[in-house]
Design a protein around this nucleic acid. Structure first.
Lengths: 378, 378
DNA sequence: CAGGGCCGTGAATCGTCTC
DNA sequence: TGAGACGATTCACGGCCCT
């Protein structure tokens, strides 16, 4: 009953544009310490942050404080605790700024290894970020463990979080499913390490020790941003995030202390070619597609009142009525409601449950909806 | 020169047996809270701890599959914590006791998901445990994400740690490599979830909501314990750790609060069949096997002084001398040193580099070492 | 008027084992 | 052979009423 009265305008993202994009340093790399650099950005101005912070731990090597001063090598227990504490302070500092500049429906990605990721993850939770997935980047060609003392360290971990437990966030479910041959994308991604042509080199040496593969960023940005979104990378390095953002039609902002990386990144991003607009269009999920009321199919004449509908096994049948409601015996209501009640199920998707006979074949209602959707596009 | 002076007795594990195994409750499940239960164990008495603590899932409402059926979720009391702070206190408490009962060269494994593993990992580091690997258990058949709101949560994480940065630990590199078709075992393991015959059921319902697959424990115990070691599981559940420990000839101790799980576990472990001894011996690591000096082969009469050795391509040759040193032209020293110098290589494993002719066939020295190893066993 | 709670509509599944 | 069951799951969202 009354299905027609429920027709709504297609939903849009209704986070108020507090910040004008023109006020943001889009397509620029901010020099200096990332915490300082982020301070120059307004609150709630960024859609996504991708961060590849220093793993800086336990390498017997260097650890820098947020202010850039150097921490002496860690030898005894006291120093070890001191260094974890220092790393934690550094992490809390940049994550706090990240949180400030992110929109309420923004997303955060951080990549790390077992040296730092547990500290980062715990601090993210402490600051109120809500973990959505931990993603395993499974390297198809990892470095072997030469000394045979441990398992080959063949993966790194990415954390994906929203701003809070109840916060909205963006996930292009349909695009990911398409990318994965019509199966749901899993939390483990097999991607080769960055090598060959893609690896930036100067004088035969790699420019950056931990350059990430573009395929990794491609999947991250495709999954959790829309074209036109603003993506911030506080540890920009040689600009993989910027290069992929440009290709995918996303805006980007970087922070990077090292002059040499900034230069390499800008040069690289200049060369990146944006995909054209039609290539950028991704599969939409039903949830974000315009919502179609069943009644509008009747209204449009695609389905005559009185048409008989069946479930696939023909255990149930029902009749379409002029107002877009369904009737089956004494039961009447929406296609979903009648399907649910007849089955005694907790819920029912009427679009896939009900079928109709058309030229001898049985088709689900959903096929009709697809046809209708195409007819009203553009 | 003077290679004989370098001959050492085969190394043995030289952690003093502070505790007599007879004083430990081997093959028993201690009832009650695991922290209390562990208090009854002596200091430094356990070789390995495998822990599967509550994950603190914080589940919301009900979940139905698209077909309307209901998902049987983990709603047990033991998985509910008020806050991260409460969970952290709990974690610190049991990890502290775990640390006390572990031997200085003991190992710790903890399994978890993104809900808890970052807190656990950070606390492990804070307590002084040294992370050796984070292992990804990639489920071949995970539960899908029915709502299409995230990536399919297709893995869990295991942390493997030693008692400290400089602490010794046990890793059966060779056994892992054998298990993995002569490739180094990686940090990501593909193992199916526990289902079918293996899953303990009572009245058609699963006995424990989160029973782990035996294949997982098999790999953990094979990798990081020796036959006869003492393995403790503070969250014993239905005793997967005990069952696999028994199969592999390891001693086990469990802690479990729930009477019903203890009973199911004991019954299950009774039925587990230990592998026979020869099957267990097949995969000993060269690294943990007693170290053999080349000279001892000469000493044992397995190799006569004067025997001619070649590299595989017969580019180089050398003569064995009575003291276990090698001579090739003017070059003399250990089998490794001479091999290295002749090739001009930075290093050389003499055991695999040098070969000898025996009954018409060419065999590497290593084959001789294997024979010798077998002869001195037991 | 902000925010919490209730309610109705509606969108959404993969691999494996059992019967 | 095919239908059904099921697994550590932080798994929707908007409108409206009520405080």
């Amino acid at each position: 009953m009354g299905a027609l009265t429920k027709i709504r305008a297609p939903r849009v993202r209704h986070v108020a544009p507090v910040v004008d994009k023109a006020d943001l340093p889009l397509g620029r790399i901010l020099p200096g310490d990332c915490v300082e650099a982020m301070r120059s950005l307004p609150d709630a101005s960024v859609d996504l942050i991708f961060a590849d912070p220093p793993y800086n731990l336990q390498l017997g090597g260097d650890l820098n404080r947020p202010d850039g001063s150097h921490v002496d090598a860690v030898t005894d227990d006291w120093d070890r605790f001191d260094s974890f504490a220092t790393y934690d302070r550094f992490t809390r500092a940049w994550l706090t700024e990240a949180r400030r500049v992110l929109k309420p429906d923004g997303g955060l990605w951080v990549i790390g290894s077992y040296h730092n990721i547990f500290r980062v993850g715990a601090i993210m939770q402490d600051l109120g970020f809500w973990l959505l997935n931990d993603i395993v980047w499974r390297k198809s060609n990892p470095m072997p463990n030469f000394r045979g003392t441990r398992f080959t360290n063949a993966h790194e971990t990415l954390l994906w979080a929203s701003m809070g437990e109840k916060a909205k966030y963006h996930f292009n479910y349909r695009a990911m499913k398409t990318l994965n041959d019509e199966l749901q994308m899993r939390s483990d991604w097999v991607i080769p390490i960055c090598a060959g042509q893609e690896r930036l080199k100067k004088g035969g040496h790699k420019v950056h020790p931990t350059q990430k593969p573009e395929a990794l960023l491609y999947r991250v940005l495709l999954a959790t941003t829309e074209a036109g979104d603003v993506v911030l990378d506080p540890f920009f390095g040689t600009g993989t995030t910027g290069a992929v953002a440009k290709r995918l039609g996303r805006n980007w902002i970087g922070c990077e202390r090292e002059n040499i990386y900034r230069e390499a990144a800008m040069e690289r991003i200049e060369c990146a070619l944006p995909l054209d607009e039609s290539a950028l269009k991704t599969m939409q999920s039903m949830r974000t597609a315009p919502r179609i009321a069943f009644g509008s199919l009747v209204e449009a004449g695609m389905l005559a009142p009185g048409t008989e509908l069946f479930d696939k096994q023909r255990r149930f049948s029902a009749q379409v009525r002029a107002d877009g409601s369904l009737m089956s015996g004494k039961e009447c209501g929406s296609i979903h409601h009648v399907g649910k009640t007849l089955q005694g199920a907790p819920s029912c998707n009427g679009w896939t449950f009900w079928h109709l006979e058309h030229e001898g074949a049985i088709k689900p209602l959903d096929a009709l909806r697809q046809t209708y959707l195409l007819s009203i596009e553009d």
